[in-house]
Amino acid sequence: MDPPIPESIREQLGHPVLVRRLDSSPRSEVFLLEFGGRPAIVKHITSGPDRTERYQIEVAALRLAGRVEPRPVAALLATDATARVLVLEYLGGARAATEPWAVRYATALARLHSTPLSAGGAEIPRYRGPGPDDVEAFLRLARRLGVTVPPSAETELMAALERLADSGDEVLLHGDPCPDNAVATDEGIRFVDLEGARRGPGVLELAYLRIGFPTCWCVKALPCAQLTAAENAYRDTRRSPASGIEDACVSWLIQGDALVERARRRGADHLAQLPSRDWEWGTATARERLLHRLSVVAALAGDHGPLAATATLTSEMESAVKRQWPRLSALPATNDDPLTDPGLRPNHCA
């Protein structure tokens, strides 16, 4: 299928020559083209009732983040709102890096989160995280696993969500900062596919490194030393303490939507399905994702006074999951890019 290149874009960039079609989500088409002999990526947002909104969000996010130096996103070369087509710079392969992938990823994420929002971006909505229904669904799962819920657990979980919402840290979030949306270049990692961009606390995406890339098919765990170095690189680059990692991890733990791919989110209680069935998604099953997140929150909350009951709850849920499904594997660990590095032996970080 030939890419739909509107006349307005042809007038700006010249005659397009198709190189090949690239993998993309079911709701868009992505192509590698050449304009005047120079490669570029063309993205056509094709389907979904929110396709116009997604196009507007991505254009706004790319324009805002494109003002940051070093740039944390692919440069936006041309757009056509009627056709919902974006043309972006082609990001070529990078030379061998001297820093671990996780550190380069966290640095790029911090640059993205440093995007000044005062310059515009009214099209970018605020992040909508889990709420009371998600807390109730998580506690129902605990009871179905045979775990006694501490009386103060519900209050603690709601308080964690409220602390995130009231943190005052409103940044440009990517919305889906997965390894396959993070392209290595000689200038550092650059992000693509920002149609899910939101305004919200940066720690929600910093938590991806610790909680295991919760919205991604390529979920993997990081060695402890790399995790620490990456989180330090993020805080140094943003020049911010980026506090609240415990609350952010709690937020990802209780989200059933973070157990399925984007097309299946919103509309079902995925946590309720776990006792009766498991399903594969990428590099881990849903139960394996849950097990990893429980272990992360249990370790973090144990050192965090406001989450004392949550630490007890998640620790007991972790033990119950292991007893009920003893053949579950820990997330594969990675020493490098999660997309290319083979899974290593199980990894646990406190």
Rank of each mutant, 00 (worst) to 15 (best):
P70N: 06
R289I: 12
V260P: 08
C178L: 01
S315Q: 12
T148D: 11
E170G: 02
L344H: 11
V192M: 08
R71G: 01
L161D: 04
E318M: 06
N181E: 11
L227C: 13
L64F: 13
V103R: 02
T148H: 07
P49V: 10
A207I: 03
A74W: 03
L194Y: 08
L91V: 09
S152R: 10
P326W: 08
V42K: 02
P275R: 09
T148R: 13
M1P: 02
D133A: 14
P6F: 00
N181T: 05
A230V: 05
V171K: 00
Q12G: 01
E187W: 10
G129P: 04
A184V: 11
G267S: 12
Q56I: 06
D247W: 02
Y208W: 15
F191K: 07
I5E: 00
Q56H: 14
N335S: 15
A308E: 13
V30K: 02
I57W: 10
W252M: 05
E316Q: 14
S114Q: 14
T312I: 11
R323N: 03
R63G: 09
L274Y: 01
A97Q: 05
P3W: 10
E316V: 11
A94Q: 10
W217Q: 13
T334L: 01
D180W: 12
C178D: 01
V171Y: 01
G131Q: 13
A78V: 04
P177T: 07
N181S: 12
K322V: 12
G146Q: 11
A110F: 02
G202A: 15
A78H: 11
P26L: 09
G212E: 10
R198D: 05
P16E: 03
D193C: 13
I5M: 09
L339E: 09
L344Y: 03
G92S: 13
A94L: 07
A97G: 09
V250K: 00
A333D: 02
R21C: 01
L209M: 08
A333F: 13
Q273S: 11
I57H: 04
E205N: 10
C224E: 06
T82I: 00
E58K: 08
V183R: 08
R264P: 00
A230P: 00
L339I: 14
L271W: 01
T285D: 02
Q12Y: 04
S25T: 14
C178V: 02
T185W: 05
T215W: 02
R111H: 11
G66Y: 05
G282I: 00
G282W: 03
G129Q: 02
A230T: 03
T98G: 15
P332N: 09
R21E: 14
P201W: 00
W252R: 00
